[in-house]
């Protein structure tokens, strides 16, 4: 008999990149978000960072990007893994280029998926998480129409899961027309609870086993 092999010591592992779970936060920074709402949103982003980093796998697998929309659309933060995510401090001004923002988010996702594929990285279905207190305003009408068509197509083909949350005086009816999934209304300015939920959901997705449906924690922060 040969010398006993201790499996725990002897076996080495292949080095493969972690599968990634991309999530875009698409945030309304129009003038009406000024004051308390934007402050609560900024605090919520810090909560999101803290919560995600409590999960060893989520911090390596969840990738966050932040896109803001007001009169312009800004990629505030391109994709980084959660362990490198620094919560940005957003300020509010201008109008509500929601359609342009959605298209930018979809473009970013297409590009990210291409990078994953080129590098042999597996990934989960991407999320876009949209937060707004209004409706599209101050951009050409076709911007939102094109965004809606893309969104419908991408949702139908499971290329993305796009969620919308309305804050305060958001036009929920209009949001219901724009987003294939029923938008939720945030209770008050409870962004903290919302981001705790989002983090828990991303943890579930990033830790999920071969499923096609990941059961998500029920949102305590919203109402239909």
């Amino acid at each position: 008999m040969s010398d006993a092999i201790r499996l725990e010591d002897a076996v080495e592992f292949a080095e493969n990149p972690e599968p990634r779970c991309p999530c875009i936060l698409l945030l309304d920074t129009s003038g009406s978000m000024g004051g308390l709402p934007i402050e609560a949103l900024n605090d919520g982003l810090e909560t999101f960072r803290d919560e995600l980093n409590q999960d060893d796998l989520a911090r390596k697998r969840v990738e966050v990007a932040v896109v803001s929309f007001d009169s312009k659309v800004n990629v505030v933060l391109d994709f980084v893994t959660a362990d490198r995510f620094e919560a940005p401090v957003l300020s509010a001004q201008g109008l509500t280029s929601m359609g342009t923002g959605l298209q930018k988010a979809l473009d970013l996702l297409d590009e990210r998926k291409r990078q994953y594929r080129d590098n042999g990285i597996t990934y989960y279905r991407p999320w876009i998480f949209t937060i707004t207190d209004g409706e599209p305003q101050g951009e050409p009408k076709r911007a939102i129409e094109e965004a809606m068509a893309r969104l419908r197509d991408d949702e139908a083909n499971k290329r993305v899961a796009c969620f919308a949350v309305g804050v305060e005086n958001a036009n929920m009816e209009r949001l219901g027309e724009i987003f294939p999934r029923t938008p939720l209304k945030l209770k008050g300015l409870d962004f903290r609870e919302l981001f705790v939920w989002l983090s828990a959901s991303m943890q579930r997705v990033s830790n999920s086993q071969p499923d096609d449906q990941v059961p998500l924690p029920p949102p305590g922060w919203g109402e239909v």
């Binding site: 040969s2 002897a10 076996v11 592992f13 292949a14 080095e15 493969n16 042999g120 597996t122």
Partner: peptide, 20 residues
């Protein structure tokens, strides 16, 4: 841990000790 992805090649350092 066992395969080198995306090619799916068996990782020698993983399997050799197991088969031994």
């Amino acid at each position: 841990l066992a395969l080198q992805m995306p090619e799916g090649t068996p990782h020698n350092g993983f399997f050799s000790p197991l088969f031994q």
